[in-house]
Amino acid sequence: MIRDITIGQYYRTESVIHRLDPRVKIVGTLCYMISLFTFQSFAGYLAAIPFFAFVLLLSRVPFSYTVKGLKPVFVMLILTSVLNLFWTEGTVIVRLGFVVVTWEGLKRMIVISLRLILLIIGASVLTLTTTPNQLTDGLEHLFSPLKKVHVPVHEIAMMMSIALRFIPILIEETGRIMKAQTARGADFETGSVLRRIKNMFPIFIPLFVSAVHRAGDLADAMDARCYHGGAGRTKLHPLHYTGRDSAAFFVLLLYLLLLYFVKRYIPY
């Protein structure tokens, strides 16, 4: 069903990771992602892979779900692997005409593709365990220091959450308009790419008009319910740090320390 489409891919279950404060998860994911770029050796993975596995196990999200995130970057993954494998200079293992495979190339291919994989499946754990609402809430809090330099943080977060609310509605409306235009003889399936793009106009124009209407209505409704920006607003479910969140930060610190020592004492 078209109305089942959601942004992100939240996996609904009960776990420690799901219950963590979104701020902790965002900061944690960011640290983890940066940490993946701090090493060029196999050794770093002795820390990174166990850490990822530990978090995934705690989150109770099936591994296959995180792997789904790799689909869109699959081509890129293959491409970088091939480039690294064949175009790195060093000790030659195999030579087949102009194709040369070196030890260094092999190592680099493995290091770089592992990094890419861990990066993407790591990030997907964040979106799998955090609802879009919690994400926007977390981002609003994390960026709130920027309010001091007059960045409208609350307003941006409000816009994000309204966009999330209206995406399914607009998708449904697109379906309705497409059906209406098809009934009037419009054709979206055949013809050259250019022709098909041209045929999209009868969808986008009514969709755009309706979106503007909805925005006007919503603005009235928000006014009527006393919305006047972020100042003085309270929250039904405010974010609080708990013991769980401190524990999570501690685990993150352990991981970073482990990574440091592994890099230092294992040369490969």
Partner: peptide, 10 residues
């Protein structure tokens, strides 16, 4: 319009 006056996602 019922859809255009609901602000939050829950």
């Amino acid at each position: 319009n019922p859809d255009n006056q609901i602000v939050a996602n829950v």
